[in-house]
Amino acid sequence: MSPPPPPFGRSRKRASQAFDAALDDAELIDVRAALAQGRWQAVRALLARTGDEWDRRGHRVTVLAAEPYSEAWARDWLVAEPDSADAAVLLALALVQRVRRGKGKPAAAREACRTAARLAPADPTPWLGLLLLERDLGAADEVADVFGEIRQRYADHHHAHHLMVARLAERRAETGPDPLHEVYDFANWAAEQAPADSPLAILPVIAHAERYRALAAAGHEPHDPAASAHWTGRRARQVMKAAFDWWLEWEQEGHPRRLVDLNFLAHAKVCEGRGAEAAALFHRIGERPTPAPWSYPDREPYSAFRTAREHALGTV
């Protein structure tokens, strides 16, 4: 009998399923299809129902804005309702996504985000758009200022904290591993500041994965994460145990981005060699992987996910 494939070996199956940024939000999936047909009224109704659930609002607007037709329909919406904050934020994030695809003008996207922020002063979503933009383009002080604006409006903003961790993890990657790197301090601070049931408790795992990505890209870690000591040291064991224990006690089934956390946690458990714990997480994930962190540092993510999942489920 041949041995099971390694956790991140090349899968025998080619990717047969596209990743869906909507995750498991069925309402969002339906409204996205309506917007593709120009029915922006469905977006208006969805965002009105979402209200001030800021993580859910940020998730929904970001996903809708990523579609190439969103900018045009958001402009039509603004013609019909010039004072609509929802239309303004959809346009703003659509322009941000256009810049991220290498096609738009950063100055226009920044101005659109600030216009949306003026129309909805309590909403962190326009600032999330700015953070998405400045995460790649902005100076450290600018990024920190935008993140501060988000935290003033909603201190536990899930997506914003993930963006900050990804940005911080890349600092000084060329100098090699550093157990005292600032990304760990930031992640621990955010987890400690958050309520006990907040999914930000898993942020130290996100930081560890993002730091691996940065170090591997700089040539300081092997490109096979399961072969990297990064995942088996004392810090890694502490981080993973604390996060898994939190998940067992507090699993947030209703959080709009919970599948992001589940994928990061499953990836960490696979890298750690904890197949039974990884299997429990894969059962929750089902067929809803996220590209990160399975793509880290330069892998075909769906194949990596399927191979790791099959290996973990075969251990129980």
Results as ranks from 00 to 15, higher is better:
residue 157 H to T: 12
residue 260 V to Y: 12
residue 233 G to C: 13
residue 120 A to V: 00
residue 50 T to H: 10
residue 126 P to I: 00
residue 312 A to H: 05
residue 175 T to Y: 05
residue 245 D to Q: 14
residue 62 T to G: 11
residue 291 P to Q: 04
residue 237 R to M: 12
residue 216 A to H: 08
residue 238 Q to G: 15
residue 168 L to H: 02
residue 117 A to W: 01
residue 98 R to H: 11
residue 132 L to T: 08
residue 272 E to D: 13
residue 211 R to S: 07
residue 88 A to D: 04
residue 265 L to I: 04
residue 93 L to S: 01
residue 241 K to E: 09
residue 131 L to P: 00
residue 237 R to Y: 01
residue 59 H to S: 05
residue 85 A to M: 06
residue 49 R to F: 00
residue 98 R to G: 04
residue 248 L to A: 04
residue 153 R to Y: 06
residue 304 A to T: 06
residue 126 P to L: 03
residue 82 P to T: 11
residue 298 D to S: 14
residue 262 L to N: 05
residue 53 E to H: 13
residue 84 S to E: 01
residue 40 W to S: 04
residue 82 P to N: 09
residue 249 E to M: 05
residue 78 L to K: 03
residue 293 P to K: 12
residue 304 A to N: 03
residue 127 W to N: 07
residue 109 A to Y: 09
residue 295 S to L: 08
residue 174 E to C: 00
residue 51 G to V: 05
residue 161 H to D: 11
residue 185 D to L: 09
residue 26 A to R: 15
residue 116 A to T: 03
residue 171 R to W: 11
residue 292 A to T: 14
residue 21 A to N: 08
residue 172 R to C: 07
residue 72 A to M: 05
residue 44 R to M: 10
residue 96 V to N: 05
residue 43 V to C: 10
residue 300 E to N: 12
residue 177 P to D: 08
residue 297 P to Y: 14
residue 281 L to Y: 01
residue 137 L to T: 08
residue 82 P to V: 11
residue 262 L to K: 03
residue 304 A to S: 15
residue 114 R to W: 12
residue 150 I to V: 14
residue 81 E to D: 14
residue 68 P to A: 14
residue 118 R to Q: 12
residue 161 H to Y: 04
residue 35 L to F: 15
residue 299 R to H: 15
residue 110 R to M: 09
residue 68 P to Q: 06
residue 86 D to R: 07
residue 272 E to S: 15
residue 205 V to S: 13
residue 182 E to I: 07
residue 78 L to D: 05
residue 44 R to I: 06
residue 107 A to S: 11
residue 219 G to Q: 07
residue 304 A to V: 02
residue 313 L to S: 01
residue 212 Y to L: 06
residue 100 R to E: 15
residue 275 G to H: 07
residue 67 E to C: 07
residue 235 R to Q: 13
residue 118 R to C: 04
residue 54 W to K: 03
residue 24 D to C: 09
residue 290 T to P: 10
residue 78 L to M: 14
residue 89 V to Y: 00
residue 261 D to V: 13
residue 198 S to A: 07
residue 117 A to I: 00
residue 13 K to I: 06
residue 304 A to L: 04
residue 196 A to M: 07
residue 266 A to D: 01
residue 238 Q to A: 13
residue 43 V to G: 02
residue 31 V to E: 01
residue 74 A to S: 14
residue 15 A to M: 03
residue 171 R to D: 02
residue 125 T to L: 03
residue 298 D to C: 08
residue 55 D to F: 03
residue 35 L to D: 02
residue 194 A to F: 02
residue 107 A to P: 02
residue 231 W to H: 15
residue 282 F to C: 04
residue 237 R to W: 02
residue 7 P to C: 14
residue 45 A to C: 01
residue 308 A to W: 03
residue 140 A to C: 04
residue 295 S to W: 00
residue 141 D to C: 01
residue 221 E to P: 09
residue 129 G to C: 07
residue 5 P to C: 11
residue 14 R to T: 09
residue 206 I to Y: 07
residue 158 H to R: 09
residue 190 A to Q: 14
residue 257 R to K: 09
residue 73 W to E: 11
residue 153 R to G: 08
residue 25 D to S: 12
residue 285 I to G: 06
residue 255 H to E: 12
residue 122 A to P: 00
residue 256 P to T: 05
residue 194 A to N: 06
residue 114 R to H: 08
residue 189 W to V: 06
residue 22 A to N: 11
residue 225 P to F: 15
residue 140 A to T: 09
residue 55 D to Q: 03
residue 251 E to T: 02
residue 254 G to S: 10
residue 245 D to G: 07
residue 154 Y to E: 12
residue 51 G to D: 14
residue 159 H to M: 12
residue 242 A to K: 11
residue 136 D to Q: 10
residue 227 A to N: 07
